[in-house]
Write a protein that binds this DNA or RNA. Structure first.
Lengths: 224, 224
DNA sequence: TTATAGCATTTATGATCAAATGATCACAAA
DNA sequence: TTTGTGATCATTTGATCATAAATGCTATAA
């Protein structure tokens, strides 16, 4: 993951920020859950200061909402928001795929193939968080090849906001994967095939299909 | 009794944040200029605390970079970064235009026409900042009609990062506008025409052309 | 003249405290 | 029962201070 060219020294607030960010992206918080400064400071074993700056940063990325009393809250999930997010994801990630696909090295392709087989392996066990992490690695391997810092940062904020929906995936879809109803690697194998054939248009289309199938799985799970 | 919006309690840090944000988006800071907490606290007449949180928020949006000692800095401008930004802008803003165009009311169209004529008027005077503001209003009137919160937020962060390039526009292109070499409203009139004819595909294409012509004007002005 | 060690300055970071604000709940009045 | 009032609690916000890290400068030695 790209955290800037920045400081050699790692500050406490950075640590808090990174951990919260990862937890959010993996869907480890409940939607509408409220995160208090003092509470988090307690669990992290720091004073309030690093926590409040980390929360502000995440709120600035729209990963958290600020309640009327200033508290930070995990955004609620709705079907409309899911569609809105996925539409933006498709626009940005399709472009990143178009740019990245022709620049992938054969080493990169090996990495992608490795990730797919690891996903199959993990799918047989039941570790949904590991599966989410592998999914991240797969997609961002392609996106990073685009060489576009701007696109990568946009995609990261979109994935961050997608975290709460990932949580629904973990609680509702995990049984399907366990029973083999659902393929743990999604359409990743098709993407790899297209990339190997240097059929970049098809790779992009398969990626879009990967997003929309996830979207279709999640939409009926949204409240209301 | 106060009838203002209940949830929008305005804190000092919000004021600092808004002002810095607007200044950045309008290109009122020099590229590579370093912004110190104490310095800004001095000019705003507050303590350090509101400033440091505002700076963190802007850094989280990639509107500022964090130097090795933690100071915030306005990013430098390069041709490569300009191209990267514009590519992302086209992807996102074209989609927002496709979604927004069919939903524009005739009142919205009147607003757009009004903005274009105001731009012509302002162009005859020499107020480049007013011109930039009007340009913002024009584009976001269309984007807001899309109804997509996610897209609007993405576009805002992109425009924020575009601010330093806007500054180049002010210092280098202003003379051209004064002598009539450059049209102050860009391709906005063509966009309005297409919208009125409900030719949405052409509206999108004209918007893309608006971005790329700006890009072509700015690229030779980038250092190196 | 150049390289370097040490010092001084600048600056952010983190902790702690006081003030202000919003939420909640009990209680009283209609 | 419903509505208004007040008290209390939880929580953020802002200020101040101590500390540490980074940077720049100067003096000194090779």
């Amino acid at each position: 993951m790209n955290f800037g060219p920045v400081s050699s020294r790692t500050t406490i607030q950075d640590g808090v920020y990174q951990q919260l960010r990862q937890a959010l992206m993996n869907g480890q918080f409940n939607p509408a859950q409220s995160l208090t400064i003092a509470g988090l400071a307690e669990t992290f074993g720091t004073s309030n200061m690093p926590v409040r700056e980390a929360l502000r940063r995440l709120a600035a990325e729209n990963a958290l909402e600020i309640a009327s009393n200033g508290s930070a809250r995990v955004p609620v999930v709705t079907a409309a928001r899911l569609d809105d997010l996925c539409r933006a994801r498709i626009a940005v990630e399709a472009l990143a795929t178009e740019l990245g696909a022709p620049r992938l090295t054969s080493a990169d392709l090996d990495v992608l193939k490795g990730i797919v087989s690891e996903q199959r392996e993990i799918g047989r066990q039941k570790n949904i968080y590991a599966l989410i992490t592998k999914n991240q690695q797969f997609h961002f391997t392609i996106y990073r090849a685009s060489g576009s810092d701007v696109l990568i940062q946009l995609i990261e904020t979109l994935w961050l906001r997608f975290g709460p929906y990932m949580r629904m995936l973990s609680t509702h879809v995990a049984p399907q994967i366990r029973t083999g109803e659902s393929e743990p690697s999604g359409r990743h194998m098709a993407i790899v095939e297209a990339l190997q054939n240097r059929d970049f248009a098809r790779a992009r289309d398969e990626l879009i299909a990967d997003i929309t199938t996830t979207q279709d799985v999640l939409r009926p799970l949204c409240p209301e």
